[in-house]
Design a binder for these strands. Structure first.
Lengths: 205, 205
DNA sequence: TTAAACATACATCCTTGTATGTATGTCAAT
DNA sequence: ATTGACATACATACAAGGATGTATGTTTAA
């Protein structure tokens, strides 16, 4: 059983990613060997090394895989709230948070990135990806805040860059704090209060 | 050079903790061997195993070491703001954040706990300590919020438990997001806006 | 036939835990 | 005040188990 067709090869690559995601989430990134991932996928380390350079590359691939659905989700919401920048920000944030709280795939990735991964030199690619993605979103959110100023939704003196940074801090914090003990409380009602209170506070800054 | 006096033994224990903190912060918890820690402290693994059961216990000891100064800082601020619960909450939060942004010791520990440690079974003691500590603080902050309701600072309908949880999420998020790329922006002005906007938002909930 | 898509085998390097060695502080007994 | 005995505070040595990367098979699609 070797030399599959290209589609089959892509399927095994996907299997490897799925297995890696499960095992990373259970045992942590640096505690899981490539052997564990391979056997969890019903394969051997040869398959892993064929599709990925090493563990760090595998982790990076995992991260990229989840970016697309989230971008799509955000893009979909972009259409509504065209004339309500602040409402758009709020609903996009809550939509992504809701996705994380409901979709296991999204939840596992978030869990890995926030609580099962050490950001050291070896994983710098993932850290960079994290920072860059945030940076890109940051520009969009900042533009939204500027639009909100233009619409009179928030004071003109609002430091929009800092306000946008704060929103992402809230996002990461809500997820991190929840993931440290998910059984203790549900994410969503808590995150909703958080985001709404923050945005409401910005209106009177 | 063996069999030091008790004070000297405590000093070497402290050296080991210092070294562990440095190396954990640089290379991540699970990527650092006990050998690295020992040599960084100018000792051998024998010393490490004498003072600590294993790496996880060493990490837990690191965490406990930082709890005391923070408790003291918070306790000191408790005296002021006796009749201004909301102001007390705000200033305590900002004081701890300021400590983290200025004090290297505090910053390193925070960095380790938030971005250089994988929360898997092996490190469950640290995770538990994190959750318990938050839980304890949570009770205090919740009581403050209740006091704030009594003083009319926030609406009586405010879900104080959730509001307190949100504050800790903000705290963790501000630190985490900053530590993912500390060079990009300074923690404090950003965190100040965050905390103040959130609390201001709570006043009109 | 060639090269893709893996599996298998091999060598190397670490790391951990423990076991043992060893020198010295501590303390009771004289 | 000495002197032993014992425990302390480490250093050193040892055994075992992985984990990684690479090299080499092996089968089959193209």
């Amino acid at each position: 059983m070797v030399r599959k067709t290209k589609e089959e090869a892509q399927a095994t690559r996907c299997q490897l990613l799925d297995a890696a995601q499960r095992v990373f989430c259970e045992r942590g990134v640096s505690h899981t060997s490539l052997h564990e991932i391979a056997t969890a996928a019903g394969l051997t380390r040869g398959a892993v090394y064929w599709h990925f350079e090493n563990k760090a590359a595998l982790l990076a691939a995992l991260w990229e895989r989840v970016s697309l659905p989230i971008d799509a989700l955000v893009e979909e919401l972009e259409q509504k709230y065209a004339d309500d920048p602040l409402g758009g920000i709020e609903n996009k944030m809550l939509a992504v948070l809701r996705l994380i709280s409901e979709n296991q795939q999204a939840q596992e990735i978030t869990s890995i990135v926030l609580t099962k991964c050490e950001y050291v030199e070896e994983n710098d690619a993932v850290r960079q990806h994290f920072v860059d993605m945030r940076e890109q979103c940051l520009d969009e959110v900042e533009a939204k805040f500027n639009a909100a100023i233009a619409k009179g939704q928030i004071p003109a003196t609002t430091p929009t860059r800092t306000a946008a940074l704060g929103l992402f801090s809230i996002f990461d914090g809500a997820c991190f704090h929840w993931l440290m003990d998910p059984a203790r409380y549900p994410l969503m009602p808590h995150a909703e209060l958080l985001v709404r209170a923050y945005l409401k506070g910005l209106r009177q800054a």
